[in-house]
Nucleic acid binder design. Structure first.
Lengths: 335, 335
DNA sequence: GACCACTGTCGAAGCGCTTCGACACACGAG
DNA sequence: CTCGTGTGTCGAAGCGCTTCGACAGTGGTC
C-alpha cells in the first residue's frame, strides 16, 4: 500500500506539502502541485481512510438508517437509498447502510465511534425512538419524513397535505362529488408514521372547501382485502365516483376489481394514485398520479446534511411540492 | 468524546489492558476485566473507528456494490442488501453502500484507501468490468451472481439451471407437453447477466429429457409487451399449456391477459413463476413458484466473506438449491 | 535601502488505537 | 530452595494522516 510519505519522497517534497496539495488548504506553486499530482498518479496512491479520519476527525461517511418495516413500499426506499448514495459521492462522501435491526442503539454507536460524520434517518415516526438520542448528539442529521416535534431538526419530505389537497382539487374540478380515499394498511396509521395522516388531512381540508364528500378507508394490500374494502365503500356511498389511492399494493387489485364489477375507468369512476411514477405508468390503466419524489428526497437530504457539515445550513423543514400528472384514469364525473 | 486512555485512568489500569479487555487477545484477570467493563459503561466509551482502523489495519466494514441497472427487479436487490447489512452486523461489520455510478473505479478506491476490509458485488455480469480489478486486489470478495470465469473467485447464487429444470419437471409431471418460457427483457440477455441464460439452459436440458417442447421468448414488462409476446406464442404454438415466467413485471400482465382471453388458470393453462415469494403470493392468482432466496443469498455472501477475512474460507461457487412451492396456478394439462 | 507582507514549503506534534516485547509475580516440579 | 513456566499487566512504538507554527525567499513600498 502506497503512503503519503512515499509520494512525498517520489516527488521530492515533504509529506505536509503532499497533504496540502490533496486538501487545497494552503497555496502550492503550480510546479510543485503538478509534480506531486504526477507522483500520485504514477504510484497509484490512495489516502488511507482510517488515518485520515483519525487525524482530521472526519470520516467522510454519512450513515443512512433504513428501518426494516415490511409495510413500507420497498422500491421507494431503495430509490431514496440509491439517490442518497450517488449524491453523497458527488460531495465526496460514502454511505454506510444501517438497518433497523439494531434500533436506536445504532445512533449511539455511530456517533460514539465517529464512524460517520452525519446521519440520514428514513421512515421517521411521529414519536421516533431515535430522536432523543439524536438530539443528544452533536452530529449533523437529516430526517426523511416528519416527526411530531421538529424543533431543532432538519427534515425533508413530500408535502403530503398539499398532495391530498391536489388530488381532491383535481377530482373536484372534474365534477366528482363523492370521493373515497383508499389508504395504507391500518398498521401504518397505528404506527403514526405521519405521512398517511397528513395526506388525509389535506384531503379533508380541500374537500370541505370544494364541497366534496370524503370516505376514508385504510386497506391492506392484495385482492381479498381490496375486495372487502371496495364493497364496503359502495355499500356506504353508492354514489362514489372518485378514488384516491395511497397504497401501492392496492392499486392493481382496485383496477381489476372495478373492471370485474363493470365500472369503467375513467368513464364511470376516476382514480388518482399517490405512488411512484413506475407504478402509475405500469398499471393496467395508466394512472393519473402524484409521484413520490424519491430521488429528490434522497438528493435534498444529502445536500442538507452536507451543508450542515460545512457550517452552512440551518434546521428547517423542507417540504417538496407535489406534482400531479394527468394520465388515463381520471375524467369528468358521469352525469 | 471519551478515549481509551480516559477509560484506563478511570479503571486504574494501562491503556493496553483496556485494549486487551476489548479485543480479548490476551488473558485478563476477572477482577480487572470487570473493573474495566464497568468504567466503559460508566463513561459511555465507544472506540474511535478511525483510530482502530489505522492501528489494526482493519476497518470492520464490508463494501456492498449495487449497480444501478433499471432492468433488475428492485425489491430483490433491496432484500439482499438488507440481509447483507443485518448479517454483517451480527459479525461485527458495518456495510458501505456503493452504487454503480462510480463504476469499476470504486473497486480501486475502496481497496486503495482500505475503507473496507472486503467487498460483496451484486448483479455480476458474465464479463464484469470489476473482476480484473478485483483479482488485482488482495481484498476478500464475494460475488452474488456468476461470471463466465469463476477461477479464484467466491460466488453465491441461486442454482438457476436447477431452477429451470425444476419448473419443467413440475409441468411435465402434470402432463404438459408444450411449454413457453417468458423471460427477462431482451436487454438482460444482451448484457449477459448469466442467470437468465442459465435458467433457459436448465429448462432445455430437462425438456429434452422429459420430451417437452419449449418456446423461449424474452419480454419487457408491462401490458403492451406482454400482449404482443403472448399472441406470438399462441400463434406459433397453439397447443401451449404451460408457462414458465421469469420476469416480475410480466407476471400480472400475463395473468390478466390469459383471463381476458378466456383461458382459465390452472384449468386451461398452468403458470410457474420464478420470482420472490411476495410476488407469487400477492398476484391475482396465487402462483406456483420457485422463490428467489434473496435473504439467503445476502446472508451466505456475508458468511463467506467473514470466513475469508478470518483466514478460513475458500474460493468456491455456492449454488443455492431451488425450491418449488405448489400453489394455485398449476394443474394437470387439459386433455 | 530597510522594512513589511505575502507566498510556498517544511518539521514536528499529535489523532486514539493496537500490539510487541518486557517484566513481575505466583506456582508446581525437581 | 531454585528453576522454569505460565499468567496478567505495562510501556512504548508505531499506524498514515492533518495541521500548526516557523521560516526562507520574493517583491513591493516609502
Amino acid at each position: 500500500m502506497v503512503t503519503l510519505a512515499e509520494v512525498a519522497q517520489h516527488a521530492g517534497v515533504s509529506a505536509s506539502t503532499v497533504s496540502y496539495v490533496l486538501s487545497g488548504k494552503r497555496s502550492i506553486s503550480v510546479a510543485t502541485r503538478e509534480r506531486v499530482e504526477q507522483s500520485i498518479q504514477q504510484l497509484g496512491y490512495h489516502p488511507n481512510a482510517g488515518a485520515r479520519a483519525l487525524a482530521s476527525s472526519r470520516s467522510n461517511i454519512i450513515a443512512l438508517m433504513v428501518p426494516l418495516r415490511t409495510d413500507m413500499y420497498v422500491p421507494v426506499m431503495m430509490e431514496i437509498a440509491i439517490a442518497v448514495a450517488t449524491t453523497a459521492r458527488t460531495h465526496g462522501y460514502d454511505v454506510l447502510l444501517l438497518t433497523g435491526e439494531e434500533g436506536p442503539a445504532a445512533v449511539r454507536r455511530i456517533a460514539g465511534s465517529s464512524l460517520a460524520d452525519a446521519m440520514i434517518l428514513m421512515d421517521v415516526e411521529l414519536h421516533d425512538e431515535r430522536l432523543p438520542l439524536l438530539r443528544e448528539t452533536d452530529r449533523a442529521a437529516v430526517l426523511i419524513g416528519l416527526p411530531a416535534d421538529t424543533a431543532g431538526l432538519t427534515c425533508v419530505d413530500l408535502d403530503f397535505e398539499a398532495t391530498g389537497a391536489l388530488c381532491v382539487e383535481h377530482l373536484a374540478g372534474l365534477g366528482h362529488r363523492e370521493v373515497a380515499v383508499i389508504g395504507e394498511a391500518a398498521a401504518v396509521y397505528e404506527r403514526h408514521t405521519g405521512f398517511a395522516e397528513r395526506t388525509v388531512d389535506g384531503v379533508r381540508a380541500k374537500a370541505q372547501e370544494t364541497g366534496v364528500r370524503i370516505l376514508h378507508r385504510p386497506c391492506e394490500g392484495g385482492y381479498a382485502a381490496m375486495a372487502q374494502t371496495l364493497s364496503r365503500i359502495f355499500d356506504e356511498r353508492p354514489g362514489t365516483t372518485g378514488f384516491i389511492v395511497q397504497n401501492e399494493a392496492a392499486v392493481e387489485p382496485l383496477l381489476n376489481l372495478l373492471r370485474q364489477q363493470g365500472r369503467a375507468v375513467p368513464e364511470d369512476v376516476s382514480v388518482v394514485a399517490i405512488c411512484p411514477e413506475q407504478v402509475a405508468t405500469q398499471a393496467s390503466v395508466r394512472l393519473t398520479s402524484v409521484a413520490i419524489p424519491a430521488q429528490e428526497m434522497g438528493r435534498r437530504s444529502v445536500e442538507q446534511v452536507v451543508a450542515k457539515l460545512s457550517g452552512r445550513g440551518v434546521d428547517e423543514v423542507e417540504l417538496l411540492a407535489p406534482e400531479l400528472t394527468v394520465r388515463e384514469s381520471t375524467g369528468p364525473a358521469p352525469v
